[in-house]
């Protein structure tokens, strides 16, 4: 294999990392603040894809890009209010069971309302086709997807690090009890954070709908990848997840680059295995009082 093709695969892997990031960052956020391991994250990803199919005839593709994450975020806040709140202080095992059940309910609900057969979803002609960056060929749609992903993640970073809202959320992640002692109630923040995290899953689902098969179980595949990224990145670390997502993408690209595509998925798990062995709290995982 030529050096050029090898570099192309590395670059492609690096770009892949951005949509791993989009899926994983919401999962990490919800876990960091409330201690809920949201196994239904993939199911909300699927809801995003199906909503895109349902809404596009009325709103057009770009309208759906804006509306779908908002609706899924709203759903997320309702789920947080009705279900998550009861489990914040409980053993994480209970929230695992809760969200596992929720994932199955959502998957079956999608099967009921849309049928089990995969559905087609077209992308606007404007975004179809190839672009060349030098000799490197890439898809126009993926450039768009990555731009949206980077914008969303950058906005999230600004929200968490440059606003009063973010200061309280970060304090809540570190030590919710002291925050409570200072007279600040974390509850409304927990709702909004769950809404943002789940809304990002919906956005990812909407953006992936034109390029992967849309079927009720599509979320499970994605959930595993998101977990791997969060575990490698480390709990509670924004940059840890970013780094891990890109690392996962590059490792996958590298394995394909050295002509072992059938190993590409296994390589990601191998990477997780290595990280857990050498650095159990993840690449940039912080020591979080509540979990130690």
């Amino acid at each position: 294999m030529s050096l050029f093709l090898f570099l192309s695969q590395l670059l492609n892997g690096l770009l892949d990392g951005f949509y791993y990031l989009l899926i994983a960052i919401g999962l990490s956020l919800i876990f960091s603040l409330g201690g809920i391991v949201n196994l239904a994250h993939g199911a909300f990803f699927a809801i995003g894809a199906y909503l895109a199919i349902a809404l596009t005839p009325y709103t057009g593709f770009f309208g759906a890009v804006i509306l779908v994450p908002l609706i899924v975020a709203g759903l997320g806040m309702i789920v947080e209010r009705l279900l998550f709140t009861r489990f914040y202080r409980a053993d994480p095992l209970y929230s695992l069971l809760l969200t596992f059940g929720l994932a199955m309910i959502i998957e079956q609900a999608l099967r009921w309302s849309f049928g089990a057969a995969p559905l087609a979803y077209n992308m606007p002609e404007l975004l179809r086709g190839q672009v060349f960056i030098g000799d490197f060929i890439y898809s126009r749609y993926r450039i768009f997807l990555i731009t949206v992903a980077v914008l969303a993640v950058a906005a999230l970073w600004l929200l968490l690090n440059r606003t009063a809202f973010g200061r309280i959320v970060r304090a809540g992640i570190q030590n919710p009890d002291i925050l409570g002692a200072m007279g600040i109630s974390l509850r409304p923040y927990l709702s909004v954070v769950a809404g943002i995290g789940i809304g990002l899953a919906g956005l990812a689902g909407m953006l992936m709908a034109p390029i992967v098969p849309v079927h009720p179980a599509m979320g499970t595949e994605v959930l595993t990848a998101a977990f791997v990224v969060v575990v490698i990145g480390g709990l509670g670390s924004f940059w840890g997840v970013v780094l891990a997502a890109i690392l996962v993408g590059v490792v996958k690209g590298f394995v394909i680059g050295i002509d072992l595509p059938s190993w590409s998925l296994a390589a990601i798990y191998l990477l997780m295995f290595l990280v857990l062995l050498l650095r159990p709290r993840g690449l940039m995982g912080e020591r979080i009082l509540r979990f130690e």
Partner: peptide
């Protein structure tokens, strides 16, 4: 190429 059954991303094959 052999493609893993779970694979959903085919971008690397498109380049090849």
């Amino acid at each position: 190429d052999l493609v893993p059954t779970d694979a959903t991303d085919f971008s690397s094959f498109m380049l090849k």
